[in-house]
């Protein structure tokens, strides 16, 4: 028993976190000073998971947008996601280790090229996820900053809306809004989803601002008569940029899951548009007969969400090495 105790005591005792002080340890860099941005970049690129995530995400994005093109601009893939054709060889994927073949991801029951369909779905899901991430960050930062700086109505609004989301499941609220906005195109859907997902970030920013507004540099700015908005924009928000960027990343990851779930339920992206979620919804019964129709969209959702989550983890470690909560 005693040995075990000592053992776990060693394990549990406070220990230096892996990134902290790493710059000083390296003699080559000991006498060189770095800007905040350089430090963050160096820490980020040392996080292998985040780097791999960044690579996978870039690869998927480039693949999705270059293969079938964006809007009127044609891509390098010659097939269209809506043209039906003859089903060759039961629609099986023709992809091998070193060649793509005619239909790398196979064909669906009406002979449409499944690679083109998955790429189209990936495009739409990525666009919505990034719209949600960026717009909800903007709303959340604005309301969080106002709530933290001015307190008053913005703060009570924020708290009451947060209370609301404790009672209404986010997915349910989003489903009702998605039902309204789904027909008006993917950007409308993205904006509507952003309208329900900003609360988490707003609370984070509020917390940061609450502690920053008591700091000396804010008092100094106030003493020389700087306006409130200038203080928020130039003095407070730049100090919360780390928190905001990290939260945005995680917001994008959860937005892609939210959108695909809604599309799966039928309240998100509406046909003729394709989302990765609606693809799974359409072909889930085909699992035994045509498993590839089910596998590919799911793997793409998983790969996107996982890589974005890893990037977020890397960014968190990079911006705040002391925290290291999830490293």
């Amino acid at each position: 028993m005693s040995e075990q105790n000592r053992d776990s005591a060693m394990q549990g005792s406070p220990e230096p976190l892996p990134h902290a002080g790493a710059e000083v340890d390296d003699p080559k860099f000991a006498d060189k000073s770095y800007s905040q941005g350089q430090l963050v970049r160096r820490r980020f690129f040392r996080h292998k998971g985040a780097l791999a995530g960044l690579g996978v995400l870039l690869f998927i994005a480039v693949l999705a947008f270059s293969s079938i093109g964006i809007g009127p601009i044609p891509g390098w893939w010659d097939k269209d996601f809506s043209t039906t054709g003859t089903v060759v060889n039961g629609g099986k994927p023709t992809m091998g280790w070193f060649h793509l073949g005619e239909h790398p991801f196979g064909q669906d029951t009406t002979g449409r090229d499944y690679f083109a369909m998955v790429m189209r779905g990936t495009q739409i899901s990525l666009v919505i996820a990034f719209t949600v991430g960026i717009v909800s960050t903007m709303i959340g930062t604005l309301i969080g900053a106002i709530a933290g700086y001015f307190r008053g109505w913005a703060e009570s609004l924020l708290m009451r809306v947060t209370d609301l989301f404790i009672i209404i499941p986010l997915l349910v609220f989003a489903a009702v809004l998605g039902r309204i906005a789904g027909d008006s195109g993917i950007f409308a859907l993205g904006l509507v989803l952003a309208a329900v997902t900003w609360t988490g970030l707003a609370r984070l920013v509020r917390g940061e601002v609450l502690s920053l507004r008591e700091r000396e540099f804010v008092s100094a700015a106030q003493a020389i008569g700087t306006g409130h908005w200038r203080i928020i924009m130039r003095h407070i928000l730049p100090n919360t940029i780390g928190v905001i960027i990290v939260a945005t990343t995680f917001a994008i990851a959860s937005a892609i899951l939210l959108e695909t779930s809604l599309s799966y339920l039928g309240f998100g992206v509406q046909p003729p548009d394709i989302s990765l979620g609606s693809l799974i919804s359409d072909y889930q019964t085909a699992f035994t007969s045509r498993p590839w129709l089910f596998w590919f969209p799911g793997i793409f959702i998983l790969a996107i969400a996982l890589s974005v989550n890893f990037i977020g983890d890397g960014l968190r470690d990079a911006f705040d090495p002391r925290q290291g909560k999830d490293g």
């Binding site: 776990s8 394990q11 549990g12 220990e15 892996p18 990851a253 899951l257 695909t260 779930s261 799966y264 979620g277 799974i280 919804s281 889930q284 699992f287 089910f294 969209p297 799911g298 959702i301 998983l302 969400a305 996982l306 974005v308 989550n309 890893f310 983890d313 999830d326």
Partner: peptide, 28 residues
């Protein structure tokens, strides 16, 4: 208790995987 052990890393990876898992897909 076992921070930064092999067990910790495996569990960390698994939690990331579950976070990123589309429920409807995993269900099938």
């Amino acid at each position: 208790i076992r921070q930064y052990s092999g067990f910790d890393y495996v569990v960390t990876f698994l939690t990331f995987l579950f976070f990123s898992l589309p429920v409807f897909w995993a269900a099938v």
